[in-house]
């Protein structure tokens, strides 16, 4: 058996490929081919079975579609027909803008809340009420106040990514070991210097965990938000192709959403490893 000498990683990779192949094969075989009109009985023809039916496409069609889209990702054929690269680019731009704004607010604010038990207790009821609200519930209010669909989508990303970052920052800062703070104090470090040289690195793993959770949520929410606001973006693309009854494109874009989400998560996993420390 050759498998015995392979490393765990290689064996896992082989297993993954086998599972993918089996899955695709079952999917391919499960899609019934459409009979040609000539083969239908008269009854079938009269009951409308001869007309074109929209079925779930087989993986071969999806792969062909992916090849076609990915070989020319940035084309523009009018407002309703843009390349997948442009759509994803719009989504990433919205996510990163909303996310960056949230980080700029949440991390300093979380720092303050984490440093002061009184501030934590005072803000906690508001956070607890605002946090469980579905970000999309803000959409009508955002559209009314901001009066701009693009900015509203960014606002929705902002509001959904703020909470994990805020809470994790506060939690991380509050949990910094008193010993390390005492080291800063016995070295006469000022408040700002202590915050940057001791508390921030000490709380960084918890903060980055919050940031990773936030980017995941933001990517989940952008698809729904773009379905509502329309115009551009991967969420709009999915909905537009559904309206076109182009299920091949729908499945292809679902896969793209997954891949981009995975890459965003991987970037934060790298950051997480960079700030991690062992006690």
């Amino acid at each position: 058996m050759a498998g015995v000498t392979l490393s765990d990683n290689k064996r896992a990779a082989i297993l993954s490929i086998v599972m993918l192949a089996v899955g695709l094969l079952i999917w391919e075989l499960a899609i019934p081919g459409q009979k040609a009109v000539g083969e239908l009985t008269e009854y079938e023809r009269l009951s409308g079975a001869g007309s074109q039916k929209a079925g779930v496409p087989p993986p071969s069609q999806v792969l062909a579609k992916a090849w076609e889209e990915l070989s020319n990702p940035f084309y523009v054929n009018g407002p309703n027909d843009k390349g997948i690269g442009i759509q994803i680019g719009h989504s990433i731009y919205r996510v990163l803008t909303g996310y960056a704004l949230a980080a700029v607010v949440a991390i300093p604010f979380g720092f303050l809340i984490g440093m002061s038990a009184v501030a934590y207790k005072a803000f906690n009821p508001f956070i607890q009420v605002l946090r469980p609200i579905s970000p999309l519930a803000w959409m009508p209010l955002a559209l009314f106040i901001i009066q701009d669909s693009d900015a509203s989508a960014i606002f929705v990303i902002f509001i959904c990514s703020i909470w994990p970052m805020l809470l994790n920052t506060a939690f991380g800062v509050a949990g910094v070991r008193q010993d390390w703070v005492n080291v800063a104090r016995t070295h006469e470090l000022g408040h700002l210097k202590t915050a940057f040289t001791v508390i921030l690195p000490a709380a960084a793993p918890t903060i980055v965990t919050g940031m990773r959770i936030s980017i995941g949520i933001a990517w989940l929410v952008i698809v729904a938000a773009e379905m509502l606001v329309g115009g551009t973006g991967i969420g709009y693309y999915v909905w537009n192709e559904w309206n076109n009854l182009d299920l091949t494109s729908v499945i292809f874009s679902i896969l793209m959403i997954g891949i981009v989400g995975m890459m965003l998560d991987a970037a934060f996993a790298t950051l997480q490893r960079a700030v991690a420390y062992a006690e």
């Binding site: 010993d179 080291v183 016995t186 690195p201 960084a204 420390y277």
Partner: peptide
């Protein structure tokens, strides 16, 4: 800084 401290649990900054 005129009074340096060595703590029992070392209190080194682990990062």
């Amino acid at each position: 800084l005129d009074r340096g401290v060595v703590f029992q649990n070392y209190s080194l900054l682990p990062w």
